[in-house]
Simulated scan of single mutants.
Amino acid sequence: MSRVLLLMVAALLLAGCKKPLVAASDDEKRLEQINARFHGGDLAGAEEDLLKYTVEYPKSGGAWGLMGWVHLKKDDYENAGKYFDKALEVDPNWENAHVGKGAMYRELGDTERARKSYLQAIRMKPDAAEAYSSLLVIELMEGNYEKAVEHGEKGWSYRKDLGTIAANLSVAYHYTGDMKKRREFYDEAKKLGYANLTVLEEVFRGERTIGPGTRATAPEEP
């Protein structure tokens, strides 16, 4: 699966992570600025800032987790895994690190470990919308379209402000043949400013496919 398509069907993702990145001891404004830099595509700048930040705030699960996403975006799986583990070491309740590890495993083609990571995130935080949307992607890849819809609707029930979840649901409903729902969630994704509507349209026209045997090659975003 192409990088742009996985950005469309993910999780979640990481969907920009709307979860607060900071704890009480963190510099909230500064970490949010780094997060914005990451989402703006400046991976080198975000990494440089995070290296300094984690020296000052070594107990920041959000900072270590974001560093994991930076390295995942760079296809540096070894370091991505190390940083996600570090995030969980300093903050065992940082469920987004499990979502990140799930994205990493999915890219590596290990959908079973990816699923386990997403489910662990949900066990830690039952309303982890990004994790449900990420499970949707796994089910799409394996051809379990009704199950994909189920996960997507669960995530949507918790977060109706994430365009990626709406986009994922639009694709899931496309494969179940429910064109009314496909359009409904396409419109929701558009309303929420989802950036890859043209990719959705290519899926609908059959120019791109998602299904059994498809391998993820790009991460969902935090």
Rank of each mutant, 00 (worst) to 15 (best):
R215A: 06
K82D: 01
D127N: 13
K125R: 12
Y57F: 12
A128H: 14
N35Y: 13
E107A: 15
A128W: 05
V90L: 13
F185P: 01
E48S: 13
K125Q: 11
E112L: 13
L135I: 02
L72Y: 06
Y175G: 07
A166E: 03
A24W: 02
A46D: 06
A97Y: 01
A15P: 07
A80E: 10
D42C: 06
L192K: 07
E153Q: 05
K154R: 04
E95T: 06
R123T: 12
V70I: 12
T176A: 09
G62Y: 01
I165S: 03
L31I: 12
Y57K: 08
L7E: 13
N35K: 14
A216T: 06
E202K: 15
M124F: 04
E32K: 13
G40Y: 09
R159Q: 11
W156G: 08
H71D: 01
L72E: 07
V4C: 01
R183E: 15
V55R: 09
L108Y: 13
L21S: 03
V55Y: 06
H174K: 08
A218T: 12
L13D: 05
M1H: 12
R205P: 05
E48W: 08
G102Q: 04
H71W: 00
A103W: 15
A218H: 15
L119Y: 14
R182F: 02
G163L: 03
T111A: 15
L169D: 01
M8L: 15
M104H: 10
Y158S: 11
Y118D: 07
R215M: 07
I138Q: 11
E107Q: 15
L50Q: 04
R123E: 14
L50F: 00
W64K: 01
Y57H: 10
K147M: 10
H151N: 10
A167S: 01
I210Q: 00
V9Y: 12
A80V: 08
W64N: 00
